[in-house]
Amino acid sequence: MRAISVRAVSASILASALALGFGAPRSLAEEPAKVSITLKDHKFSPAEPTAPAGQPIVLEVSNEDGTPAEFESKVFRVEKVIVGGGSVTINLRPLRPGRYRFFDDYHEATTEGFLVVQ
């Protein structure tokens, strides 16, 4: 009877898994897309930033106003207070193509933007 090494069996299992598409999850294999937004004079710039679909996103929001703002998005389930002159980083899961609303909760009537995922 021929002995089979553990290393050979492990390599065979790994090769089979990769051939069947069971590699590392896509979101772990890819670098996150970085999107920067600036808040100034109670307006987001850009008001409609873009990001790639199906990839994790790192959203960096800088508040150039002297007063605090509250970045909020109901769809992202995020509420972050940003002090005047400060910034926050928000990590988002991979998203499907679409247009996702965000706003400054302290000035919702005038401060709104949309993350466009394509």
Rank of each mutant, 00 (worst) to 15 (best):
M1C: 09
M1W: 15
M1K: 10
M1E: 13
M1N: 11
I4F: 13
I4S: 12
S5I: 09
R7K: 14
A8W: 00
V9F: 05
S10H: 10
S10Y: 10
S10G: 12
S12C: 08
I13P: 02
L14W: 06
L14G: 11
L14V: 11
S16T: 06
S16G: 09
L18K: 05
A19Q: 11
A19V: 04
A19H: 11
L20Q: 13
L20T: 07
G23C: 06
A24N: 13
R26A: 15
S27N: 10
S27Q: 08
L28G: 11
L28M: 09
E30V: 11
E31V: 10
E31T: 14
K34D: 09
S36A: 13
I37A: 02
I37E: 06
I37K: 01
T38W: 11
L39K: 00
H42F: 15
H42Y: 14
K43G: 08
K43R: 12
K43A: 14
K43E: 15
S45V: 12
P46C: 10
P46M: 08
A47R: 13
E48W: 11
P49F: 05
A51C: 05
A51G: 07
P52A: 00
A53Y: 06
A53R: 03
A53W: 03
G54L: 02
Q55Y: 10
Q55C: 09
P56D: 01
P56V: 05
I57Q: 02
I57W: 01
V58M: 03
L59M: 12
L59D: 11
E60F: 00
E60Q: 02
E60A: 02
E60I: 03
E60S: 03
E60D: 03
S62I: 06
S62T: 14
N63S: 04
N63P: 04
D65N: 05
G66K: 03
E70V: 15
E72G: 08
V78G: 00
E79F: 09
V81C: 05
V83Q: 14
G85Q: 04
G85I: 06
S87P: 08
T89H: 01
T89Q: 06
I90F: 08
N91L: 12
N91C: 11
L92Y: 01
L92G: 08
R93S: 08
L95T: 06
L95R: 02
L95Q: 07
R96K: 15
R96H: 13
P97M: 00
P97A: 00
G98F: 01
R99D: 15
R101C: 09
R101V: 15
D104I: 05
D105W: 07
D105P: 09
D105C: 08
Y106P: 10
Y106V: 14
H107I: 13
T110R: 07
T111F: 07
T111M: 14
G113D: 06
F114C: 10
V117M: 00
Q118D: 12
